[in-house]
């Protein structure tokens, strides 16, 4: 331990050797501290490198693609046939599959997820919540390829009994299973938002004679609305980026449709299809996956930003 005089003594001043030795040790100790701090900083900075890498790679490779295919054509063409001799590159075809399957997923996930969230936050006993939440977490931990198998070989045959004309690959079963997969996600973020509503609001409502459900629907949900909306939007972002369920169960045939009963490729499924094929690197066909990936990234980035912005808003409210 340095004595007070050693700490106060300026470096290089005439001080006893013991103290200057200690000062020297302090210098080397500081150097080590600085080096460690720099290393830790670099580790933290990896995330910035990763983002920069993603943007750089997608933009660079997409520029190669867009030098062959004008952006206008990419956005307006109604055919997606990059692997044919008569190549068309209309991202709207893949986008339609992504939008349709995501819509089906949300039709499943929003009612289920919201109900579960309200139930867990306002009705369930702490014990029931302690059990239900981890089990829900397990549900979201199942690998998506397993959900894909389930959609193709369990849900689709089941649906075909109800709708005999349903083809083996379709957006409906993939969407439904994707919805179930997102439920824990939507439920847990919405529940967090509802639990952040101060108890005083509920007590005020109870004091006026409102029942639990009336309090939940007319006081808690409106107070937590931006958090719940954030949950939905982050759920959309999940659905849009989901790959394996769609690649397995929805088919890989590009199809400009908004009918969930048809098979259609999504942006993600298309990337998988090309990656599985043997197109040479550098060909326009191959570059398409980077353009598709860029479109996907921009789409999810938009949803994520809106979602995070809304989450922050409800956090600041109380």
């Amino acid at each position: 331990m340095e004595s007070a005089s050693a700490l106060d003594a300026p470096v290089g001043a005439t001080v006893p050797t013991v103290v200057s030795e200690r000062l020297a040790r302090k210098f080397s100790r500081n150097l080590k501290e600085r080096a460690i701090e720099a290393l830790l900083f670099l580790a933290a900075f990896v995330s910035v490198f990763t983002t920069a890498g993603i943007v750089y790679i997608l933009v660079k490779e997409s520029l190669v693609f867009f030098s062959h295919v004008p952006l206008w054509q990419f956005l307006t063409d109604t055919q997606w046939t990059p692997l044919f001799a008569d190549a068309h590159y209309g991202i709207s075809v893949l986008l339609s599959g992504t939008i349709t399957s995501s819509a089906v997923a949300l039709l499943v996930a929003i009612p289920l997820g919201t109900t579960i969230a309200i139930y867990l936050s306002e009705f369930a006993s702490p014990r029931a919540r302690e059990i239900a939440k981890p089990v829900l977490e397990l549900l979201s931990g199942v690998p998506t390829i397993v959900y894909g198998y389930f959609a193709l070989l369990f849900v689709t045959p089941l649906l075909q009994k109800l709708i005999p004309s349903l083809p083996g690959f379709n957006l409906l079963s993939a969407g439904i299973v994707m919805g179930i997969m997102i439920v824990p996600y939507v439920a847990s973020i919405s529940e967090d938002a509802m639990r952040a509503v101060p108890m005083a609001l509920r007590e005020g409502s109870f004091a006026m004679g409102a029942t639990r459900l009336q309090t939940a629907l007319k006081v808690v949900v409106p107070a937590a609305v931006s958090g719940i909306a954030a949950a939905y939007i982050l759920g959309v972002s999940r659905a849009v980026g989901e790959t394996m369920i769609l690649a397995v169960a929805a088919g890989m045939q590009p199809n400009l449709t908004f009918n969930p009963l048809e098979p259609a490729a999504t942006i993600t499924a298309y990337i998988v299809q090309v990656a599985l094929g043997d197109l040479p690197h550098g060909s326009v066909g191959y570059q398409t996956i980077f353009a598709a990936g860029l479109a996907l990234l921009l789409l999810t980035l938009f949803f994520n930003l809106v979602g995070f912005w809304m989450r922050r808003r409800y956090r600041e409210a109380y």
């Binding site: 995330s47 910035v48 990763t50 983002t51 890498g53 993603i54 790679i57 997608l58 660079k60 490779e61 982050l234 972002s237 849009v240 980026g241 989901e242 790959t243 993600t268 990337i271 998988v272 990656a275 996956i289 980077f290 990936g293 996907l296 990234l297 999810t300 980035l301 994520n304 979602g307 995070f308």
Partner: peptide, 20 residues
């Protein structure tokens, strides 16, 4: 960046790895 990366679809990481 960290918050954002948590929301990037996994397949985009695949494209990053492919290119990089």
């Amino acid at each position: 960046n960290i918050t954002n990366l948590a929301g990037v679809p996994s397949i985009v990481y695949g494209l990053l790895a492919l290119g990089l």
